[in-house]
């Protein structure tokens, strides 16, 4: 394989890995605080794409601003889903939350079919993302280069929120012990909303980059990335942010590498993901990293 192709594959793998990481974080932080697997997370991811799609398609607002607005709307959506769908079940047996999450997922998918239509739509994005840049003689599509950069910036932002802000502190405390966090003055409802907001915001960033890479969107587009990101979170150790990043990166990076180096095996790339899952769980049932730090 020529060196330039190799570099392209590495960037591609890093990009996909980081995209999975962004989505996986949403699963892991929600689980960390509520012990709930938010099955609607992949559908929140899908909705973000449609927000950008309709923003760019129906309004004269520039694409970049549409993307930012879509991230805001997605955050609002995630917070609302928790408020309406999950909060009334707080304290109920875990299986109730699980059912609510599955129901929410079906609801969003069917809502999208009815309102947006089931036929795949071409996702519009600015031409600059398609521009081929040449760095040290290597040809790279701008989006391939931009994806990992944006993801890393998002992760740095996340790190700041979690470790340097009061809400982040509340989140880490509440993920260990609701009652003690409460008697310290933490408002649990606000903290949970904040958590859903962060998770949904990261999913939206991931979704927009994803759609620019694979520019065809439809109501079920979130299902498979959602499952894989969830798998990534489990591999990393559900509840752990670092774990979700590691798990997402592992899955995305190795999928791309497998296809690049063993093209004949590319049909097995999803099997490969679940092999990583099974091996991890056999060797370390709690995943690579323990819990939310």
């Amino acid at each position: 394989m020529p060196f330039s192709l190799f570099v392209q594959n590495v960037l591609n793998g890093a990009g996909l890995g980081l995209l999975y990481a962004l989505v996986a974080i949403g699963y892991t932080i929600v689980y960390g605080i509520l012990r709930l697997i938010n099955f609607a997370h992949g559908d929140i991811f899908m909705m973000a794409m449609f927000f950008v799609y309709y923003g760019a398609f129906l309004t004269p607002i520039p694409w970049g601003i549409c993307a930012v607005l879509a991230i805001g709307l997605t955050i609002l959506l995630g917070v609302t889903i928790e408020r309406v769908g999950y909060r009334p079940l707080r304290g109920a047996p875990r299986v109730s939350g699980l059912c609510a999450a599955i129901g929410m997922s079906f609801f969003l998918e069917n809502f999208a079919i009815v309102v947006f239509g089931g036929r795949p739509k071409p996702f519009l994005y600015p031409d600059v993302l398609d521009k081929v840049v040449i760095i040290a003689g290597i040809h790279i599509r701008a989006i391939t280069f931009i994806t990992p950069v944006v993801c890393v910036v998002a992760l740095l932002g996340l790190n700041y929120l979690i470790h340097r802000t009061k809400m982040g502190l509340a989140m880490r405390a509440a993920s260990r012990d609701f009652d003690t966090a409460r008697v310290m003055g933490v408002d649990i409802n606000k903290t949970v909303s904040f958590t859903f907001g962060i998770g949904s915001g990261l999913a939206a960033i991931g979704a927009i980059l994803w759609a620019a890479r694979y520019p065809q969107i439809h109501p079920f587009i979130g299902v498979f990335p959602g499952w894989k990101a969830f798998t990534a979170a489990v591999i990393g150790g559900i509840g752990s942010i670092n774990g979700a990043i590691a798990g997402g990166f592992l899955i995305g990076f190795f999928t791309i590498m497998l296809v690049a180096f063993f093209p004949s095996l590319s049909g097995y790339k999803d099997v490969f993901v679940f092999v990583i899952l099974i091996v991890t769980l056999l060797l370390k049932p709690t995943g690579l990293f323990g819990e939310l730090e």
């Binding site: 009061k166 405390a173 003690t180």
Partner: peptide
């Protein structure tokens, strides 16, 4: 609280900070 309930995942300084939440 009974049993102290220190947040094991937070640093000592963060445990104090959350007291002043």
């Amino acid at each position: 609280p009974e049993g102290r309930k220190i947040f094991p995942n937070l640093t000592v300084r963060e445990n104090l900070a959350i007291g002043a939440f």
